[in-house]
């Protein structure tokens, strides 16, 4: 029955499209535009690519930018190298059909994911603090006290420590998604493998893992986007200065400091917009790479 869709379609679409356009899409492009302006005496003046010349050309700015980007890449690498394997491992164990208490484990392991960065940042800061001494005394109990260092306060370790804290917090997400993907594999496929003598570890590596690759791809791109606009954890644990000595500075904290100013430097919305534009370019590049190169090559199986 062909209802002539006219007026009511607009009514249904209008609120979502209006809010989304006004609060998300328009500011996004406006931010890109603002990066081409600079503060003048009476108001913003068009400056072309001047802000980007400063960002990449000025030794101070470019050093800060590359430091933040480098740290961000390392942050992402740690997530990919630690969070995903642990998540896959936990999911593989959980998906065992006759495992008892699976619901309990699943719910408990997901708890850190629901906590705010403020809680997570401070809680770990307290636990790792040399003043409170929980971490050193626990290491002492297993005879490893010599390994202890005030990790969050050392330039060499702080970023890795924060990345691992973030891994601790978010490991629940890959675990859940992979778990769901593993449960979706039909019994028949695994039984066919069993008949061919593929069981246990071999079944995991040669049947299950290839079948959940698309999920791993989705997790990777979610992690990528999440990491490259991360801010809260670093801010909560180390403050806007991302100490010690900017060793934990990532693009999000760099943007925040530039935009709002800190200590003696005044905030500059146009330089902030330039950094946001760079972040946009990085995230867009990552998403496109995923959509056009990785997702199209991953084979999806329909059961």
């Amino acid at each position: 029955m062909a209802v002539r869709p006219r007026f009511h379609v607009a009514v249904f679409l209008a609120p979502a499209v209006l809010v989304y356009t006004a609060v998300m899409i328009f500011p996004l492009f406006n931010t890109l535009r603002l990066s081409l302006y600079a503060r003048g005496g009476t108001g913003p003046v068009f400056a072309g690519l001047e802000n980007f010349r400063t960002l990449f050309g000025d030794p101070h700015w470019s050093a800060a930018f590359w430091n933040a980007l480098g740290n961000n890449v390392w942050f992402f690498v740690i997530h990919m190298a630690v969070q995903n394997p642990i998540g896959i491992g936990l999911a593989a164990i959980l998906s065992h059909p006759r495992l008892r208490f699976a619901t309990f484990y699943r719910s408990a392991i997901f708890i850190p994911t629901i906590l705010s960065f403020v809680i997570v940042g401070f809680a770990w800061k307290l636990i790792l603090s040399p003043i409170w001494g929980i971490a050193p005394s626990m290491l002492d109990a297993v005879g490893l006290k010599s390994l202890y260092a005030p990790w969050l306060g050392k330039e060499d370790y702080a970023l890795t420590t924060l990345a691992l804290i973030s891994v601790w917090q978010f490991v629940g997400i890959p675990m859940m998604l992979i778990y769901a993907a593993l449960l979706a594999i039909p019994e028949g496929v695994l039984e066919a493998g069993e008949i061919d003598g593929i069981t246990g570890w071999a079944a995991f590596w040669r049947i299950k893992l290839p079948l959940v690759l698309p999920s791993i791809g989705i997790i990777s791109i979610l992690t990528f986007v999440g990491n490259f606009n991360a801010f809260d954890l670093i801010y909560a644990a180390q403050g806007a200065l991302a100490g010690p000595d900017f060793s934990t500075d990532i693009l999000g904290t760099f943007l925040y400091r530039t935009f709002f100013g800190f200590q003696l430097q005044l905030g500059d919305p146009h330089m902030g917009a330039a950094i946001a534009t760079a972040m946009f370019a990085i995230i867009l590049a990552g998403v496109c790479l995923y959509l056009f190169l990785i997702q199209t090559r991953l084979r999806r199986y329909q059961f």
Binding site: A16, F26, T31, F259, G272, A276, I283, V287
Partner: peptide
């Protein structure tokens, strides 16, 4: 096209537009 337009925001974080959002 409308579906694609609305889906853009799934992957692009809204934080990127913060400078202009604050201004607005």
């Amino acid at each position: 096209l409308m579906g694609l337009y609305l889906a853009l925001g799934i992957m692009i974080p809204i934080r990127i537009g913060t400078v202009a959002i604050l201004q607005m």
